[in-house]
């Protein structure tokens, strides 16, 4: 294992801003794994730290295949993480909306450009990222529909679902999209939690990456086979809205079943503790996404359901 600095600048007030990468084995660029790009993606960094530990052990045991390099970049934005700010510490820009970046541009564009240049050329790219709405998902692999996405490969992670999403204009500036344009097969992995550590889903994420690397012949690793994934089009998920604002009490977790008409959440009056809305499932299905904040505004999406096919 070699630890190296892939981007660095000196800040007068905070010392060195450093992005570190961990390289395992030498040879063809087989797989690059990227962790937190935002200052609140603690779970994503934690998953990478577990992978660095696991890959280090595999390397010591000579179980990384000859001629295959694996790189892990656990954290792109330590300055924001240290002040508990989601986006860039000074101007609030999002690194994952700044690709392909510009090496002679503004600070965030420089980080994006430098990162992309250092992690380009890999056959596979895996990014642990987070959603812009507060909530938990069933662990899944997400791919942007660029015409180059490969859902068959995404199945090899052994996670229950693969979700394909048509990119909106702003998503053309994400790492996933730009990796794909640079001929890397890119996968974004979503687990439960962002700002807190969830050991169970972190373990699932680590196992899924090791399973994928094993199935691609990059490591020699024996593991449980995982799931045969179902591929979903994101537009096919059924959003469930609340029509009142108040204290939110969800009654279902990701992976739970919901029947048509079943009450799946309550909205409570914030001062009087009375139920002002019973949120009902508009169809039968499985909870894919569940809002997890204690408050909800009117018109918030509190669940996304995988519709159950009628018999």
């Amino acid at each position: 294992m070699i630890k190296e600095e892939i981007y660095k600048y000196d800040s007068v007030y905070r010392g060195d801003f450093t992005v570190s990468a961990y390289r395992f084995n030498k040879g063809d660029k087989a797989c690059c794994i990227v962790g937190s790009m935002r200052g609140n993606e603690i779970q994503q960094m934690y998953i990478c730290s577990k992978l660095i530990k696991a890959l280090g052990e595999l390397e010591r045991q000579c179980r990384i295949s000859y001629g295959h390099e694996i790189t892990v970049v656990p954290c792109i934005n330590p300055f924001s993480m240290n002040i508990e700010k989601r986006f860039w510490s000074t101007d609030g820009r999002d690194i994952n909306r700044s690709f392909p970046g510009n090496a002679s541009g503004e600070p965030v564009q420089r980080v994006a450009a430098e990162l992309l240049s250092k992690i380009s050329g890999f056959q596979y790219g895996i990014h642990f990222t987070s959603f812009y709405m507060p909530g938990d998902f069933i662990p899944h692999v997400r791919m942007l529909e660029t015409g180059r996405e490969n859902t068959s490969l995404a199945n090899l992670f052994g996670l229950p679902y693969v979700v394909v999403r048509k990119p909106r204009p702003f998503e053309e500036t994400t790492l996933n999209y730009n990796w794909q344009l640079n001929n890397t097969s890119a996968f974004s992995i979503y687990t439960n939690e962002t700002e807190h550590i969830d050991e169970e889903s972190a373990g699932i994420a680590v196992a899924s990456v090791l399973r994928f690397l094993s199935r691609m012949g990059i490591i020699k690793y024996q593991c449980h086979g995982g799931y045969i994934a179902t591929t979903l089009d994101e537009e096919g998920l059924m959003p469930v809205y609340c029509t009142k604002g108040g204290i939110y009490r969800g009654l279902k977790r990701p992976g739970d079943e919901a029947e048509h008409g079943e009450v799946i959440a309550h909205i409570l009056h914030p001062y009087e503790n009375t139920v002002i809305e019973e949120v009902k499932a508009p169809c039968s299905g499985i909870v894919f996404f569940a809002h997890n904040a204690p408050l909800a505004s009117e018109n918030s999406v509190v669940y996304k359901l995988i519709r159950r096919l009628k018999n």
Partner: peptide, 26 residues
């Protein structure tokens, strides 16, 4: 706050808006 409080989203990156997201996209 430059962005939309709560979500820290740039409103000038969410047009034309639509359904299935935050209330602000609506």
């Amino acid at each position: 706050n430059r962005h939309i409080p709560m979500y820290e989203l740039d409103m000038n990156r969410m047009f034309p808006g639509g359904e299935g997201g935050t209330p602000w996209e609506h």
